[in-house]
Amino acid sequence: MKKILASIALTVGMSTAAFAADPIEGTWKTQPDDGSYAHIAMKPCGAALCGTIARTFNDGGEYSSPNLGKTLVMDMVPQGGGAYEGKVWRPSNDKIYIGKMDLNGNSLRLRGCVAGGLICSKQTWTRVK
Rank of each mutant, 00 (worst) to 15 (best):
P23H: 06
Y63C: 06
S64G: 10
W125F: 12
Y63H: 14
T27R: 13
D75R: 15
G99R: 12
T126C: 02
G105V: 06
G60H: 14
I40A: 11
I96L: 05
E62S: 04
G26R: 04
M14E: 02
P66C: 09
G105T: 00
Y37E: 07
G35I: 03
R90F: 08
S15E: 00
W125C: 09
A20H: 03
Q79T: 02
S121M: 08
P66M: 04
P44A: 13
S65R: 05
L68G: 04
V73C: 11
S15T: 01
A115W: 11
K43E: 13
H39I: 07
L108P: 11
L118P: 02
C113Y: 05
R55P: 01
P44W: 00
A20M: 13
C113I: 08
L68W: 07
V88Y: 09
F57R: 04
G51L: 06
Y97E: 03
E25I: 03
G82D: 06
M101P: 06
K70W: 01
N104L: 10
G82V: 01
L118Q: 09
S64W: 04
D94G: 07
D102V: 13
D22V: 03
Y84G: 00
K43S: 15
T16N: 05
F19Y: 05
K100I: 01
P66V: 11
D59S: 15
G112F: 03
V128W: 01
T30K: 03
G60I: 03
D94P: 02
I24A: 13
G86E: 03
T52N: 13
S92E: 07
T27P: 03
R55V: 00
D59I: 07
L110G: 11
W89Q: 11
P23Y: 08
T30S: 14
